[in-house]
Design a protein around this nucleic acid. Sequence first.
DNA 1: TGACGGTGAGACGGAATTCGTCTTAGTGTC
DNA 2: GACACTAAGACGAATTCCGTCTCACCGTCA
Lengths: 209, 209
Amino acid sequence: MTNSVTVAASAAGVHHSGVHSGVEARVLDAAKRCVERWGMSKLTIDDIANEASVSRATLYRMFPGGKDVLFEALRVRELEDFFTRLAAHLEHVDTLGDLLVTTVVAATHELRDDSHLAVMLASEPGETLTSLTVDGLPRIIRVATVFLVPLVDEYLPRRDSARLVELLARLVISYFLAPSDHVDLGDLDSARSFLGTFVLPAFEPLVRP
Amino acid sequence: MTNSVTVAASAAGVHHSGVHSGVEARVLDAAKRCVERWGMSKLTIDDIANEASVSRATLYRMFPGGKDVLFEALRVRELEDFFTRLAAHLEHVDTLGDLLVTTVVAATHELRDDSHLAVMLASEPGETLTSLTVDGLPRIIRVATVFLVPLVDEYLPRRDSARLVELLARLVISYFLAPSDHVDLGDLDSARSFLGTFVLPAFEPLVRP
DNA sequence: TGACGGTGAGACGGAATTCGTCTTAGTGTC
DNA sequence: GACACTAAGACGAATTCCGTCTCACCGTCA
C-alpha cells in the first residue's frame, strides 16, 4: 500500500469490457466488510480475495495497483450510491428553496445513517476524515455536482448552480462532522431557517423567471 | 505464535519479584482490547506493546515466550476474576441447595454479561470454544475447584465436593454455550428445579450432619 | 553517592508474511 | 475449437514481525 498522498488517479476507468458479472461488486463488498472488521492497517489483499471468494490474480486483474485503486473504486461507488439515494428524495420539489432544504436534510440523514461511515470514523478517524475533507472533498464536490447541478439548473444559470452545490456539500459535511448548537441540518425546520437566512438570499435573485 | 496444541504451561509463575506496579495489568488490559479489536490472527506483539504504552523489551521481560504465555496469563487472570466475582455472591447461603442454585445462576449471568467473551465467541469462535471446552475446561475446573470446593466443604466430604464442583462447571458451560428449551440456568426457579431434580438427590444423602 | 532493578528506545539478523507477477489448467460461451 | 474469464498456486522481492540484545535513563535504597 503506497503512502503517496493519494492515488486520486482515474479509478473511473474501472469499468471493463466484459460482463463484469457482479464479481467486481462482490470484491468491493468484501473489501468493505474487511476494512470494517480489521481496519486499513491490518488489511491484506489476500483477506479481501478470500472474503470475496476470488483469487488474488483476479483481484489484481480487476484493480491493477492493488489496495490503492481498489479502495479508490470503492469510494467512487459509495459516493455514487450516496447521491443516487439522495436524488431519489428530490423528485417532487418545485422551488429552489425546497430543493435546497430537501437536499441538505436528506444528505445529513444519509450521513448519519451510514453505519459503514460510522465504523470507519471510529476505527480509522485519520484516514476517514481525510477522505471527507482535504483529500476527498474535491471529488465529493465533483460527484455532487454531476448529480445535483442538473436539478438546480431548473432554477439557476449553470455557473451559479455549481457554486451553490459546492456550498451545500461543504455545509452538510461540516455540520455533520461538527454539529452546531444553533443549527441541525437534519431537522427540516432548522435547515429551512438556516438556508433561508444564509444561503437562499444570495441565490434567489439569480433565479430564472 | 506457536501452533502447539496449547502452552498450558505454568504461566502461574508470572508473579515477579519486584513491585510489578500495575504494568502487568496494563499490558493484560491492552492485550484484551487488542484481541477484541483485531482478532488473534492479526495481532502482533507490537500492537500490544503500543496499546499498553510499554516497550517490546518490557513485554518480553514480563512474559518470556511472547503472545503464548501472555494470553495464558490473561486467561488465568480472567478466570480468577470470574470466580472472585462469583464467590461474592455466595456469602450468605446456608444450605447445600442454595449454594448450588446461587452458584449456577450467578455463574450463568457472569458468562452472559461478559462482553469480552461475547466478542471473542463472535470473532474467534474456534479458539474461544477451545478455551472453554477441550483445551481450557480442565483448567476451568481446576480453578473452580480451588475457589468453590472450600465453600462446598461446609456440607460435603472433600472428595464429593470436588466431584460436585466439576459437575456444576460442566453443566453451566454446556447450558451457556447451547441453551436448552427446558432449562434456563440463569433463571432462579428453573435452576432450582433442575438442580433439585438431577443434582441434589445424588449429593444430599452425603451431607454431613 | 553509588549500586541496582525496572524501564524505554531501538538496532540487529533471521523468520514469516505479504506483495505483485506469472504460468497453468479449468470452465462456460459463442 | 477459439475466446474470455477465472482459481490455484509458484516465484522472487519487499515488507513486516519476531525475539534478543545493548544502552541510556530514572527512581529507590543502602
